[in-house]
Write a protein that binds this DNA or RNA. Structure first.
Length: 277
DNA sequence: CCCCAGTCCTGCGGGC
DNA sequence: TGCCCGCAGGACTGGG
């Protein structure tokens, strides 16, 4: 499930598309069982033709391709979407393809096994309305410790649930929320409103450390093997997970307590009941 | 404000 | 061995 580190890896993987001109945009599937295209096909493909890619950016968990027209092509991978160069994991779930000229990449593809993701072409106004404040909070890697506290401390929700709210802070999903709270030694059920100054400081440091480390390893490829980088290679951070999907294994910090799993907001949280308070 | 259930969707693994 | 069911959860919606 692509979160900030995985989406950042996708973004870096297609930086070679900058300067390229879109020769053609293709929908690679039968009209039945389609992902969401906006505007609906064939308008999306027609509007992309001839556009030049000016930049490849990231907004939270979305890849944003800036075009010469001021428009943005937004890839939203949700659970199983991948932005790729060349070969996808399978032909079966390939959804969309850009043919490029004048840059180092011949092709950018979107593949999505479950098809919950989307590809959207938005005007600058649409992008601001849909993915600007207050719809999307500041990027998790861009906030200071003070901003992090400002964004979250008014909420009485459990800190684990608050961290998943993209309107408060963009980029953190279920996996990294558990990992970050373990490094920060904060219990996932603790109310955000009740964190101490020292805990906010630790949370901020842990958030940066975990996300940057995960980016260095090019993200987490879980046992289902779905996530791949732009070259269809596995990430490496799954081998460094401290708690996520490790219920019943010893805590890597105290080496004695076993990692617990609880459900919060209908999602699994993993933590050490001894180290995290 | 906050919570919950339902929606989209596929593949996998537990249970019988 | 096979089949069904539930689970995984990101973003969103509607109801309480």
């Amino acid at each position: 499930m692509p979160e900030l580190p995985e989406v950042e890896t996708m973004r870096r993987g297609i930086l070679g598309a900058v300067g390229g001109m879109i020769e053609s945009a293709t929908r690679c599937e039968s009209p039945r069982r389609t992902i969401r295209f906006e505007p609906p096909w064939p308008a999306l493909g027609q509007r992309l033709q001839g556009r030049v890619i000016r930049a490849v950016e990231r907004l939270g968990k979305r890849v944003v391709v800036r075009l010469d027209t001021g428009e943005a092509l937004v890839f939203e991978p949700r659970m199983t979407g991948l932005v790729l160069v060349d070969e996808p994991p399978s032909r079966e779930h390939l959804r969309f393809e850009l043919r490029l000229a004048g840059c180092s990449l011949a092709c950018v593809r979107y593949w999505d096994q479950r098809g919950l993701g989307s590809v959207s072409l938005l005007t600058a106004e649409e992008l601001a309305a849909r993915l600007g404040p207050p719809k999307l909070g500041p990027d998790a890697l861009a906030v200071t410790a003070d901003t992090l506290r400002d964004r979250l401390h008014a909420s009485r929700r459990p800190i684990k649930v608050a961290l998943l709210d993209q309107r408060a802070l963009a980029g953190i999903g279920n996996l990294y929320a558990s990992e970050i709270l373990h490094v920060a030694a904060i219990h996932p059920r603790r109310s955000a409103a009740r964190l101490t100054r020292d805990q906010w400081r630790r949370l901020h440091a842990a958030m940066h450390a975990v996300l940057e480390e995960a980016i260095r390893y090019e993200g987490s490829t879980l046992s289902d093997g779905t996530y791949r980088n732009a070259l269809n290679q596995s990430g490496g951070y799954q081998n460094h997970h401290r708690v996520y999907d490790r219920e019943g294994l010893p805590c890597p910090r105290c080496l004695s307590n076993l990692i617990k799993r609880i459900v919060q907001a209908q999602r699994s949280s993993f933590f050490c009941g001894s180290c995290q308070r």
